[in-house]
Design a protein around this nucleic acid. Structure first.
Ligand SMILES: [Mn+2]
Ligand SMILES: [Mn+2]
Ligand SMILES: [Zn+2]
Ligand SMILES: [Zn+2]
Lengths: 139, 139
DNA sequence: GTCGGATCAATAACCATTCCTGATTCCGAG
DNA sequence: CTCGGAATCAGGAATGGTTATTGATCCGAC
């Protein structure tokens, strides 16, 4: 267990319970960007007694203290991510798979936005949708 | 009524019914980026018999034939927009107001993304959240 | 005017997520 | 160690936005 994660729990006042640890491990085991339901199914393999609501609770605590992130696409439940760096994720509109897109510079985007609005910018998320190679072949 | 809109209806095969026209007019009357519920309330002022479901149907037809667009933020219902150009909208996390942000160039964004992924990119939407000046003062 | 398909209003159903409640676990003080 | 209060939990009900269903109504081609 990463000591940075322990730090964030200590600072936040939340405790690192077994359920929250299990949810974190599920995020690691899944191959990236699972939904709450996906996490729930993974956690249940080891602890069949957990409830879906508990997973939602744990995910929201983990996100609040900055251990995980989340992104939202239309027509898909929220996807969770251990990668906290600003980066691009693309979702396949056919099968729902989510992949990361490296190599697109997003560095100055938020500051360019801030320069052009009187709002105080809190977040800027690029939501990308497309068709994955597998689905394109099978179409 | 814009003749371009008539064209899009003719090409699509959908008919331009009074309800769809009323929804379009509501989009114009609202000061930008209303939710389906907002549109419903405006339409109801002139025609109290419409149902919310009818508004959803009309909005989805209008979006399908490319007359209106929509954007999704967390913790907010879908917002609809007559502005079909690629552009930025920022939503205030306090009061929910949505404003446009001119001046940020997004032109090459989609092609830069396409260059860095094997997915076939369909859409790239920048979802921006912040605090509007009014809410910042009243905080 | 008649017919058949499109569209409509109304309502039920859906699904992701949140809320609520009572039970359990955790943790520090004594 | 033991007790009591607080945090967290599981389970289920409730919520809110949206979509599907259904029977009625409209409209255009003939
Ligand atoms: Mn990612
Ligand atoms: Mn806009
Ligand atoms: Zn796919
Ligand atoms: Zn505001």
């Amino acid at each position: 267990m990463d000591s940075g994660i322990r730090d964030k729990f200590r600072k936040s006042g939340y405790t690192l319970t077994s359920q929250r640890r299990a949810v974190l491990e599920a995020l690691t085991e899944s191959d990236g960007h699972p939904s709450a339901e996906d996490v729930y199914l993974i956690v249940k393999r080891k602890n069949p007694r957990v409830a879906l609501g508990t997973v939602y609770q744990a995910l929201s605590v983990l996100e609040e203290i900055g251990v995980i992130g989340s992104k939202h696409w239309n027509e898909s439940p929220t996807r969770y991510d251990l990668n906290l760096e600003p980066h691009l994720d693309i979702r396949c509109g056919h099968c729902g798979a989510v992949s990361e897109i490296p190599g697109v510079g997003l560095d100055d985007l938020e500051s360019r936005i801030q320069e052009n609005t009187t709002y105080q910018v809190k977040s800027a998320t690029l939501v990308v949708e497309g068709v994955c190679p597998k689905c394109r072949r099978n179409q």
